[in-house]
Amino acid sequence: MGTSSDVIVEQPLLKGGEKVFRKKRWRISSIVKWAIILLFAALFAILFWWMIDTALLSNRHVFDYPPDLWPRVPEWSNFAKAIAQTNFLRYIANSIGVGFLIVIGQLITASLAAYAIARVPFRGRKIAYGVILSTLMIPTQITFIPLFLIMKQLNWIDSYQALIVPFLGSAFATFWLIQAFRQVPQVILDAAQIDGANHFWILWRIVVPLSKSSLLSVAFLNFVFHYNDLFWPLVVTQSDVMRTVPVGLSYLIASDGAGTAWNVLMASAIIAVIPAVVLFLFGQRYLVQSVSHSGLKE
């Protein structure tokens, strides 16, 4: 506390003075703060730059020392080579198609089940909910051996069915949509029911549109997972035309060995990343929402 005279002089100014003081401190600490953030951001972004840089270097300059951090004459033909040397566009089409169909299937089965569990009082509802909850903890990777044998039995090895069908039911998606569908106000559903609407109509015309952002969040997150997944496509695909992007890429690096053409390889990797980044740019809000939602407790 200051002396009494200070108080008298400063009192009328106290509020404004404090504001100025705080603002200044905020500025210094925020410069430090942003410097640290920038440092980490650069550290994280270096890989992307290194990929792009290498992909644009000509064969002659890939191994230059000191490294060419800014390709003066960008060698765009590396990308053409990357596409031409394998069935790369086919891999991308496979990945996008498979991911898309899985997600659509998951949304349909999950919406139906979630609606029933959240909104239709029926006998056995608790049991069904319990079964879905219990599968939430099963990581798919540990079931790949039995899944593989089932696919073999069905003669589905090296087919789109094998890439898609095992994932059409998602406990995670169902669980999430149950939470979302519970948020829809009962009055709206009651009103629709009085008007004689059936459950399909209510689900499709009322509940789904009202839960659009939850549906999109699940869709983005699961699409990313399946677009990126290597393990399962690696074990169930055999022919080149069935390969997904991760499988195709993994064969590229495995076959290259010692004489790796890093520039073309990086170009391939960048092409593989582009769909994911485009998706990220459009769906960032939903992706982030879905991740943060998964940490929320009821």
Binding site: I108, T109, A110, L112, A113, Y115, A116, I117, V120, P121, F122, R123, G124, R125, A128, V131, I132, S134, T135, I138, T140, I142, T143, I145, P146, L147, L149, I150, V165, P166, F167, L168, G169, A171, T174, H199
Partner: peptide
């Protein structure tokens, strides 16, 4: 209706998730 709606997910999870754990 309830069971009809829940059935697809239950079947898929029953075979490919729970069933597969039993199988493994």
């Amino acid at each position: 209706i309830g069971w009809l709606f829940v059935l697809p997910v239950l079947l898929l999870l029953g075979i490919f998730s729970l069933g597969s754990v039993g199988y493994v």
